[in-house]
Structures are given as structure tokens and as C-alpha cells.
């Protein structure tokens, strides 16, 4: 139970970063932290004690394995997170080139 709460505290750190920081790069970092926490939470939900990774070996009988379905889901999630991060960074660099700052309170002019 403590593990789940620690994982959600990591999520809250990311949420604080997204809500309270004014730098675009900091906001991207906060979104990344939230994604990490959610992935870890899903994997924790599929974990079983005293079990093996879901890979069969040649000469071994494996009694207990962890749940393979959350791992397959999280695999998709990591890829989507990378795509979102890349597009956000491209937009942030474009904004920096146009306005000369990363501060989101100064990006309110309809310029150009």
C-alpha cells in the first residue's frame, strides 16, 4: 500500500510542476514525470509476489508469472509518451524562435 502512495506522490510532483511552473520546458518535464508515475502504477497493479518475468525458458517449468497484459499496455503507453514529448519540444522551440522566451505569461501577444 505504501508503494502505491509513493507512486501517487510522484504523480503529484509532476502535477505541481505542470500547474505552477511558468517555463515551457518545465511543463514538458512535468508531463513526463506524470507519465512515468502512471506507467509505474499500472505495472505495480500487475505485479505478483514470488513470480517470474513472463518469458518461457527451454528446460524450465515456471509456476508463477507476473501479469503480461499490463506490460503490453504500458509498452504502447511509453511509445505514445515519447511521441507527445517530441511534438511538445518541437512546438516549444518554435515558440522560442518566435517570441524569444519560454515564459508562458509573456506569450500572449498575437504577433506576426
Amino acid at each position: 500500500m505504501v508503494t502505491y502512495i509513493l507512486c501517487l506522490m510522484l504523480f503529484c510532483v509532476g502535477l505541481y510542476c505542470v500547474l505552477r511552473k511558468r517555463n515551457l520546458i518545465k511543463i514538458i518535464i512535468g508531463i513526463g514525470i506524470m507519465g512515468y508515475a502512471v506507467n509505474l502504477f499500472i505495472i505495480l497493479a500487475g505485479y505478483r509476489a514470488q513470480s517470474r518475468a513472463p518469458i518461457y525458458a527451454n528446460d524450465q517449468i515456471v509456476a508463477r508469472m507476473v501479469d503480461p497484459l499490463p506490460q503490453a499496455m504500458v509498452m504502447t503507453s511509453i511509445v505514445l509518451e515519447l511521441s507527445v514529448t517530441l511534438i511538445l519540444i518541437a512546438i516549444a522551440i518554435r515558440i522560442y524562435e518566435k517570441y524569444g522566451t519560454f515564459d508562458i505569461t509573456k506569450i500572449n501577444k498575437l504577433k506576426g
Binding site: L86, A90, I93, R94, E97
Partner: peptide, 14 residues
Amino acid sequence: GLFAIFVALVLLSK
């Protein structure tokens, strides 16, 4: 694709 993204972002700099 990822290398194309890296190249595009490097060439973007002013």
C-alpha cells in the same frame, strides 16, 4: 523517423 526528427530540430535553430 526519430533521426529525421533530430535532424529537423537541429536544423531549426536560428
